[in-house]
Design a protein around this nucleic acid. Sequence first.
DNA 1: GGGAGTTGTCATTCC
DNA 2: CTGGAATGACAACTC
Length: 800
Amino acid sequence: MLYLKKYFTEGLIQFTILLSLIGVRVDVDTYLNSQLPPLREIILGPSSAYTQTQFHNLRNTLDGYGIHPKSVDLDHFFAIRRLLNQVRSLDHLRVPSTELNAWLVHRDPETVVSAASQSSPSIALDNGGSLEDVNSPEPSAMRGTGGTSESTYNLSGEDSLGAVAPEANQEQGNRDSVDELSKEDIDLIDILWRQDIDLGAGREVFNYSSRQKDGEADKPNEANEEAGVQEEDWRNGINLQEGQGITLVDGETGESIPEQLSSLGTQTSMSLQECLRLLEATFPFGEESEFQATEADPQLRGPAENVPSTSQGLSLPAPLPQSDAPLDLEQQWQDIMAIMELQDMDMNNTAENTNLNNNLNNTRANTSESGTMTSFGVPQSSLINQDVSLHQASLPSCSQDLPNLFNSELDPSVGQRPTLLRLSSSNSSNINSTFGVTNLTGLFLPPLNSTNNLTSSPVLPDPFVSLLEESMLDEISLLDLAMEEGFSQAQASQLEDELDSDSGLSLDSGHSPVSPSNSETSCSSAASSSSTSATFSEEGAVGYSTDSEVATAEAEEGAVGGYQPEYSKLCRMSYQDPSHFHNLPQLDSINHNHTYNLPLASSYPEQPQLLGSCSKKCRDKHLQQTKIHPPREFIDKQSSRDERRARAMKIPFSNDKIVNLPVEEFNELLSKHHLSEAQLSLIRDIRRRGKNKMAAQNCRKRKLDTIINLEQGVQDLRRDKARLLKEKMECLRCIRQMKQKVQILYQEVFSQLRDEEGRPYPASEYCLQYSADGSVLITPRSMTLEQSRKPDKKPKDKKK
DNA sequence: GGGAGTTGTCATTCC
DNA sequence: CTGGAATGACAACTC
């Protein structure tokens, strides 16, 4: 069986690759996509691999620690994993994934099988993404098989069936191939793989850490401690290996890696270069549209290339003048980092977007199941989504520049890498594990889902297209923010749920401080009336407060404008839908009695609320007390100091009236009663304190609103900055394209120039210069150099 | 027992 | 000048 699988996979993949290279469209998915158990069995291995065994946790736990019992050969498994990730990292190249597969063929037939099966969309798609590594962190990998991976994450979170199968498949399908890898090869692959992570693609890093945390939470034992140490080592390893990884990558530009590679006895670099040369020869790096046109089959192309609107953005950078490319690429890389950092904090529309994506995914799932998919298995929704995402396609092009950037501009990129790592750790570490739907895949992938996996949609969106989608970023950022604010994973996940409905603590933030006071009624009624009246009805009259007093008090509150809004807001803070806070452990402790301005009459009836804030034991105690006629002491205890004082001084009206009556009515009230000086003094103190109390509440509320508004302002500014950066990148992309065109025109013009004797000008000796008036001069390069020193020197030679 | 958050109160300033 | 709003500071209270 194993042999058959290997044979079949190799043959099929290689055949597909070859066909794709010569421009013949091969829709392997149609074959593999069919529910052919034998075929699936062959490709994916025994069906047991599909079982929901959390096998994928192998990858995410500890790179060899916390091994699942099913992992018979763990070394091989992880070696394969690194290999596969390294292969996927190759997808960073600015070449269609098909060509990448071809390069893999060149590289090593043994690895090609596993690698190609992982990276080739046309092959991997069918098995419900089973051939695709679910935990593949690289956006580049997503470019090829993004839909599959994301889908498994979206739908299943951590324990999805889809996530299981790929892992098992990897292990079973590729172990044999890795067996033949030398240790050095594996090391090299590991280095490259880490380099890929450094490039910002390592979702596995994220999953790793997050799942690591999950694992620790689930199994807090020694193994987990060891795992934690391992994680640290692993992370450090990433950092330490950066230089190595970059060095290797740099070798792609012909600097240092050839030696290393040769020493390692691999042909990776050469193969890659050969492949690129082949690509250049096959698809002349001229107009991007031409290149696109030469593409044989959109289905075999990378997903990005399929998208019409991104055709420019995803164009190959190869024709760029070497002098320009590094700068542009570096700049764009910095911009990407800036955007990612900036939007890292975006919080708005998260829940909506998440739901939207989920709904979209569900819709697609239903669509695919109902057979309304296109012939390629691409749901219309996904296509639409791609189109939507394409508006921000500038980043994808930049993302594809990344490898080149790292290759050509080593030093500048090094400075950026910490940021990338920070993103990796902060964004992903918790998100993937905690939020099954909002995992990091969403960051790099448009919301395709497992449906696409199972239906093998070959038109896969560019991963970095969705990277720029603010919704995704907002979501990630929000979660990231939650992490930064000290939420645990569980809390964060609950927070996510909260966000879907309505945010808990920040509820008041959005409200204007001058909210209409009509809410006061509902608030007071919700806070006191509903609960209190119920209490009254059940317990009868209590103390000196009566229902009528409550009613009058409320009426008076209505008459006294000004504080009601605050009261309502404050009341809302404490009373509004406590269910909002039930899922927030960090908020459980915040259950104070915020009955700021409740009238005195209603103070005592608020016992239910007060009891609500007590523990169960406390509540029972109170219940016992209230079932009998509550003793006077209890009433006093429940009353405020001023209430007790007023009672002691036999003040003939409620504190509520004292505090809330307008000055005229208040004075009139005082004049009606014959009060002693002590009583008058107490009344005035009560009024002063009551006023001040409300003022303090207002003040605090204003503070809170101010802080929240400032936060919102910061978020808005960050969003604006990110948007401007995106626009800037778009402009840079346009400039780059214009430069390409100019370069092409330059070559064309220069090649047509002839001297007096009809001979072409040697490009090494002459060059074209553009004058300010629009004319073009051909000048010797030596003169050009001199001119650069002496700008005013006059050019000679003929004018075209 | 102590930390953190909430609430009430006082003193003060300002309108 | 008075009433009251605003606010910092402090203490009490709760979790």
